[in-house]
Design a protein around this nucleic acid. Sequence first.
DNA 1: ACGGCCCATAAGGAGGACTTATGCCTGAAC
DNA 2: GTTCAGGCATAAGTCCTCCTTATGGGCCGT
Lengths: 302, 302
Amino acid sequence: MPELKLRQVSQLPPLQAIRVFEAVARHLSFTKAAGELGMTQAAASYQIKLLEERVGAPLFLRRPRQIVLTEAGQRMAPAVSEAFALLGGAYAAARSGADGVLCVSTLLTFASNWLAQHLGSFQVAHPSLAVRLDTSNRLVDFAREDIDIAIRSGGGNWPGVEVHKLFNADFTPMLSPKLAATIGGVNEPADLLRLPILDPGDVWWRDWFIAAGLPVEELAKRPGSSMGAQAYEANAAIAGQGVAIVTAALFKAELADGRLIQPFDLVGDDGHAYWLVYPQARRNVPKIRAFREWILAEIAGQ
Amino acid sequence: MPELKLRQVSQLPPLQAIRVFEAVARHLSFTKAAGELGMTQAAASYQIKLLEERVGAPLFLRRPRQIVLTEAGQRMAPAVSEAFALLGGAYAAARSGADGVLCVSTLLTFASNWLAQHLGSFQVAHPSLAVRLDTSNRLVDFAREDIDIAIRSGGGNWPGVEVHKLFNADFTPMLSPKLAATIGGVNEPADLLRLPILDPGDVWWRDWFIAAGLPVEELAKRPGSSMGAQAYEANAAIAGQGVAIVTAALFKAELADGRLIQPFDLVGDDGHAYWLVYPQARRNVPKIRAFREWILAEIAGQ
DNA sequence: ACGGCCCATAAGGAGGACTTATGCCTGAAC
DNA sequence: GTTCAGGCATAAGTCCTCCTTATGGGCCGT
């Protein structure tokens, strides 16, 4: 489509030449403008000549000691300067603005049971960074959602993204001390069979029963209600409605203050883990780097 | 100076990429924007990717059926569009504005004796073109004066400029009929010796005397006052103060209405001529082309 | 008169931008 | 459900723009 190209080209002059023109018009010197732009005087001369040919009129008068704007140049200079100021502003706004808000996509459970208690220290460390949490269990697609960084669980093998393991998604039974007391305490795995099991359809129960040497058939008999998220299941457990099977690392606070107890050291592990995930191409973006370094240090430090 | 370059580059993003971004943001389509810019979709994709890496954040979310601006993109788009509108306006203003005023540098004599009587028809033919006359006898330098086109006399061999011969700078004696009557009419060259000669030091007189077979020594005796310009000399002749030697083509009106008479057909010619002159590079600028075509037709037509 | 400053020009080279070709994904239509 | 079409991404290759180095010319100041 050569005619289209021609039309376009005639609509707008070469941008590089205009950028040079703007600098030259400000300095009224080819040499100084070239210096500001980080190129040689010859390059500036070349670009101005190009632009003058395109405009169809000289833009500068070459006087012995300095140059001055022609009438045409004077008409052009102010608007061009303003346009570049706008452009610079827009660019800076996009850059810094992008640095000012960090969009984190996270799993519901992780948000309520880990981030909620730790995020404060990140905010303190980076007061200029606003964090926007996007809570969902979908697998985020960085190309089609406005997300900077995500926390996911799974095998950790996703293409095109950088991953850091936070901790294993292990699992172990938990219940409220009050519920345990109703049967005189939970001392060995078999004791669990005398209590209601929240979401017995969860494969984690099956794995753990096998590991604990309990009969798996017990699970099938039970009435099940899938909770969907560990946080919900844990809440039910805290309320004393039954035994939950969850990731211990996410409930340190509940274990510490006695709302939940972990009766056995035995934990199941299906190889899944919690991961920090972000696009490879953006690994050096400051806010992403900041969040990464913070969360890894936080995890390692506890 | 690599660090200088770096500084500059980080100040402003690649302009070509921004131009593409502006179009894409308007169309919300890589393909359509590429079409408008006269390039392929792949090129647009490439430029956007470049810009996104530079900004440090995605600018568009790639949704299946269309793309949408990210937060960063939204911040950037309006100002960028405005900047390009400004740029386009400035460019158009310089272009069309430059087309609106034609600066003609001309010799005093040519201005008062030829242009004054013909310029009207040019104005009528090009009502949107304002003509600014710059009258001087200096040899204009297009590089350091704001001049579009010039009329000069001389040999016609100037470098870097396009030249068109208007008419020969021939010369012949002229005087007022009243003065001629004081000696009973001027019938042969020798009659001139009985009349005062304006500016006898002019080399034209010497050439013409030789061509007419008159003794050159006569000229040396005479008291001379250089007039500087044919127009002044002719005015003195019209006032009856003496005989002038001027270019006949420039005094057609005076000859026609009898203010001056040309007693002899004999004209001198030193090879000089009147020329239309302008920079080669600007030969196709509309206003320059218009003036050239008009003046050549006007000269040819009389 | 001579050196310095500044711009113009020519030749040459490095890198960027664009094109072509192809693949992938998704949504719509049959 | 399957195929088709629309739209973007990616890879490889080519061309050309833009910049650099080098040099010359004009004018000013000392």
